[in-house]
């Protein structure tokens, strides 16, 4: 199994400098479909699915490897090396912002810049740190996933259907978007929401852009500000977009912010 098919790597664009987009917990590389095309004229656009998501190779999922975010970061480094990339601009949404941070710490020679969309180095509150969630709340989330309380593992797959009003949604999208193996998704949730990467932030050498949304319950403003304060060469931009997925709800604003920075 090659690295490229393992992570369902898709390459497009006319430029030389690579811009690599990474999706967060929940969905797959289609999260970037309103953003990535805007950079195809000037960059080599690289999209991929984390193992366990989208059209990645589920059989490549190894519980011990992916028991921490480092396993996912190692995949990112492998993809870059396989493609012979350098000067990479890594755009990571949600937990992938930290995955990109870990990848850039492991292989600083590969990455020129990081764009972190809604990053959080730690979701659970700690002494002197406001992550936005109590340990009990994250426990409740993981428990409800483990317990299938939301019935989502059964309901996710058939929930996605074609939409005649939005023909740009290709069939392959409706087939895979948000569809994840329940067991893997549960483990990815545990790894994501119990992660603590605060100590890694000062070690980032790549220039970094933090994009902070309004009303983001998952990565609140004080968390984005914390990331900005800890990453040496970083810039913080507040988006007007609200919620956790500006790449879907306000793609133009995200595109403009990345262009401005890159």
């Amino acid at each position: 199994m090659s690295v490229l098919s393992r992570n369902n790597v898709q390459i497009s664009g006319a430029g030389d400098q690579p811009m690599m987009f990474a999706h967060g917990f929940g969905c797959d590389q289609n999260m970037w479909r309103f953003v990535a095309p805007a950079f195809e004229a000037d960059y080599k656009v690289v999209l991929f699915d984390h193992v366990g998501a989208g059209r990645s190779d589920l059989s490549a999922y190894k519980a011990d490897k992916y028991a921490s975010l480092q396993g996912y970061a190692d995949d990112v480094v492998e993809i870059c090396r396989e493609l012979g990339l350098s000067r990479v601009i890594f755009v990571g949404h949600s937990v992938s912002a930290m995955i990109g941070a870990l990848a850039s710490v492991k292989a600083p020679e590969l990455f020129e810049s990081l764009v972190m969309v809604g990053p959080s180095p730690r979701y659970i509150d700690d002494a002197g740190y406001n992550g936005g969630f109590s340990a009990a709340q994250i426990d409740e989330l993981l428990h409800s996933l483990a317990d299938n309380h939301m019935g989502w593992s059964a309901s996710m797959a058939p929930a996605i259907m074609g939409n005649p009003d939005r023909p740009e949604l290709a069939e392959e999208l409706t087939d895979s978007f948000c569809r994840t193996d329940p067991d893997i998704a549960r483990e990815f949730a545990r790894v994501t929401f119990t992660s603590d990467n605060r100590a890694d932030l000062p070690r980032i050498r790549a220039r970094t852009l933090v994009l902070q949304c309004a009303n983001d319950i998952i990565a609140a403003e004080q968390v984005g500000e914390y990331v900005h304060a800890q990453v040496p060469d970083s810039k913080l931009v507040y988006l007007e977009a609200s919620g956790h997925c500006p790449n879907l709800s306000a793609p133009d604003e995200v595109i403009a912010a990345i262009r401005d920075f890159a």
């Binding site: 709340q137 929930a159 939005r166 948000c178």
Partner: peptide, 27 residues
């Protein structure tokens, strides 16, 4: 809280992407 995280990471993107969702279980 658990439901809102799940909503933000799964159903909100789904709604934005396809313009609708059906039969989503919420608490």
């Amino acid at each position: 809280v658990a439901g809102s995280i799940f909503y933000e990471t799964h159903f909100a993107p789904l709604l934005r992407m396809q313009g609708f969702f059906n039969e989503v279980a919420l608490d």
